[in-house]
Amino acid sequence: MACLPSDDVLGSTGVSVLLTLTIATTLEDVAQKTGLPLFRVRGTVRRLLEAEFTHQVGQMYEITPAGIEKLEQEGENPDIDDISL
């Protein structure tokens, strides 16, 4: 019953997860790198997939150009030289 639509801000969790996905990574590795519990990584990556900020490559996940753009919008600077897009 929101009187306003939710904004699409990533939040610190979304940013930290997305930053680990500049290289294709498994969810377990994301959990290890970010220190987040695996259940939280799963939920966050699901939302990033729905927003098309990441895509799945087999058992791994990787940032998309839209995801890079989103990070830049939020003031983050992903190291795009490492991105294998």
């Binding site: 519990p37 695996l38 259940f39 939280r40 799963r42 939920g43 966050t44 699901r46 939302r47």
Partner: peptide, 13 residues
């Protein structure tokens, strides 16, 4: 409070 959750998110723990 952590966004959308599914029970399956907790598999493995």
């Amino acid at each position: 409070t952590f966004g959308t959750v599914r029970l399956e998110d907790f598999r493995g723990s």
